[in-house]
Amino acid sequence: MRPDAKKKIAAAAPKKGPNPVIIGAVVAAVLIVGVVVAILIGNSSKSGTAASGNAVPVGVVGGTGGGILVDAAALKSSVPTVDVYADFQCPICGQFEKAFGPTLTAMAKAGEVNYVVHMMSFLDTNLGNDSSARATNAAACAADAGKFGEYHSAVFAAQPAKEGDGYTNAQLTEFATTAGITGPALTTWQKCTTDGQHTQYVADVATTSGKAGVTGTPTVKLDGKDITKTLTTADALITQVKLATK
């Protein structure tokens, strides 16, 4: 053995103490497991609203997660379509409804526009309650009774001053009366609401709207084009709808 060989061997041999490769592998494993678990939990929390009923309400257009057509029996190809994406707990949606709701309803009743309302429920996630989903389910039950537009207006008219206070079940029933649901229709509505018969629809609208690129409310689309920022007054909306009418 050459005299310096021993030194060289000692230098080449692994140093005593922890091995960076092993520690690195452990850290990487923790990272991977953490990410996988987070994604699994996230995905399960998303579909957590187990469907007790998956009936699609009356008046839904554009697939199972589509919006509800207000004050019309069917989409008309001759007039423009206005899609409104809103959340019953969103204060700006309440202001939007106050400023534009009556105009849109009137135009829908006159057959000048296809007025489609997509009620989203993501504020439940942000506010930590379930009022948006419950109110949306109740509104979908009102759609079955042919009173979606009226119910929708009644909810927004009673929007709590403080975002996050939500709606009680008693309030939801009051709104049904306000919307003019009476007699046997009210009994059906109550059962539909209590059973959450449109829970799956509520979740579907949220997903479908999200996939359509709607990440905030209110969002207003005219024939598929986002016009939210252009809407300063009701007249601006009427003008745009007229322009889009061929």
């Binding site: 990272l31 953490g34 990410v35 678990v37 987070a38 939990i41 996230g42 995905n43 997903t207």
Partner: peptide, 18 residues
């Protein structure tokens, strides 16, 4: 996209903490 954004949203906090 909707789904990819979901995965990023779920995973990002874990990665940040680690």
């Amino acid at each position: 996209t909707y789904d990819v954004a979901g995965y990023v949203g779920y995973a990002l906090p874990v990665v940040e903490i680690l």
